[in-house]
């Protein structure tokens, strides 16, 4: 395997925290490092300062936290199906056609009724609905599209609300014979496990790469070649 993966060629795991290369290979590397001039440039073998390591860890945590879908992730059409149903119900339509109020007041009151009604029900979308409140105007615009999609019996969770459009935004895996997807990520994992695996793979590869160098306790003597 090592022939095809040089990263693992001569890998030694006897003292992995110091070096992952056999002692004789390290001695060869040290000799080259000290006796070879790369166009008059020399290199030291310092580790990253510890505060900078802390900064890198903070960067990773920030990357994961900042982009978590509490902020800005597009809502799915499924979240608003109940809104549309309630909008078309008799009590809400009665409010919406009440000429004694201004149109803004009618919309506000109707939306309060819908939200109040939905709060009484237990729904898997409760949390996301708090994150993505909607105005009556927006609901009117998207309602016909949501109804049309619902009549086609498609999975509304695969559709996102994008501006004034309701667009297909899930492309994971093929369809089963019954028209459902083989795989669909939950709302809280839109690429996050992929990102964590990607990051871990990077860490493992880079740690092995730098641990194949002579240990950080050794610094080259540049007076030899320069």
């Amino acid at each position: 395997m090592s022939k095809f993966l040089p990263l693992f060629d001569g890998l030694s795991l006897s003292k992995p925290l110091a070096s992952m290369t056999a002692a004789d290979k390290n001695e060869t590397a040290k000799h080259i490092w000290e006796h070879e001039s790369l166009g008059g440039i020399a290199e030291n073998n310092n580790p990253l300062p510890r505060p900078v390591v802390g900064l890198l860890l903070l960067t990773f945590l920030t990357a994961m936290a900042w982009t978590f879908p509490l902020y800005g992730q597009r809502p799915s059409a499924a979240m608003y199906l109940d809104y549309v149903t309630l909008m078309n119900s008799a009590p809400v339509q009665k409010v919406l056609s009440d000429k004694s109020m201004s149109s803004a007041d009618r919309d506000k009151k109707a939306m309060e009724m819908i939200v109040g009604e939905l709060e009484q029900k237990d729904s898997k979308y409760s949390f996301q609905r708090i994150q993505h409140p909607i105005t009556m105007n927006d609901l009117r615009i998207m309602a016909p599209k949501i109804i049309e999609l619902n009549n086609q019996h498609v999975d509304l969770e695969e559709y996102s609300i994008i501006g004034r459009d309701v667009s297909l935004a899930n492309f994971e895996g093929n369809y089963r014979a019954d028209g459902t997807r083989i795989h669909k990520q939950p709302w809280w994992d839109k690429g996050y496990t992929t990102a964590v695996c990607w990051f871990l793979g990077f860490c493992i590869a880079v740690i092995i790469a730098v641990k194949r160098l002579p240990p950080i306790t050794w610094q080259p003597d540049h007076t030899i070649a320069h």
């Binding site: 990357a63 994961m64 900042w66 982009t67 879908p69 992730q73 597009r74 996102s160 994008i162 459009d165 667009s167 297909l168 935004a169 899930n170 492309f171 994971e172 990520q185 994992d189 839109k190 690429g191 996050y192 992929t194 990102a195 990607w198 990051f199």
Partner: peptide
């Protein structure tokens, strides 16, 4: 309307 997972991954 790119897939949300792709945007989230790219953002991380």
């Amino acid at each position: 309307p790119l897939p949300e997972w792709l945007k989230s991954f790219a953002s991380v």
